[in-house]
Amino acid sequence: MSMCDNPSTDDHYHQLDRYIDSLHYKKENLIGILHYAQELFGFLPDKLQLHIAQKLDIPAAKVYGVVSFYSFFTMKPRGKHTANICMGTACYVRGAEKLKEEIEKQMGIKTGQITEDNLFSLDSLRCIGACGLAPVMMVDGKVYGRIHEPEEVRQVLEKYRPQG
């Protein structure tokens, strides 16, 4: 029985199954498998979690519990690019809240959401160890520090918008 909507998702499920089959310890590797699956699919929708649960013969509730616990895992599709605002202590005292509001304003979404054109997902995280550059934002793993002005935010986001 295929749980898939289109050939490429179908391929992803096969690839995931091959990966799980290759593991000596399966149930014990749930977190690693979820990492792999999220890398492959971009996010972890319910039916993918259910597929993993059935493949590992563990309750779906347990998979859901683990996915919900770690902020790294996401159950919603992500934008093409992931922007993160650091809300750690150092960034916070140097204006991360204001920075967050500005980014939300320019993207037209709230933290945790995805832009209408699917270009950006916006999330917050706690301290990436770049406190000297506070306040910090990150796009696809690249760090942008000392961002204070709306214009600076605009310039960062512009780099990821399709040109022309």
Partner: peptide, 18 residues
């Protein structure tokens, strides 16, 4: 295995799958 703790911190709640 119907139940699991879901979420973390103050938001933690015992839920069913999904």
């Amino acid at each position: 295995g119907v139940y699991s703790a879901v979420g973390r911190g103050f938001e933690t709640v015992i839920k069913t799958a999904f």
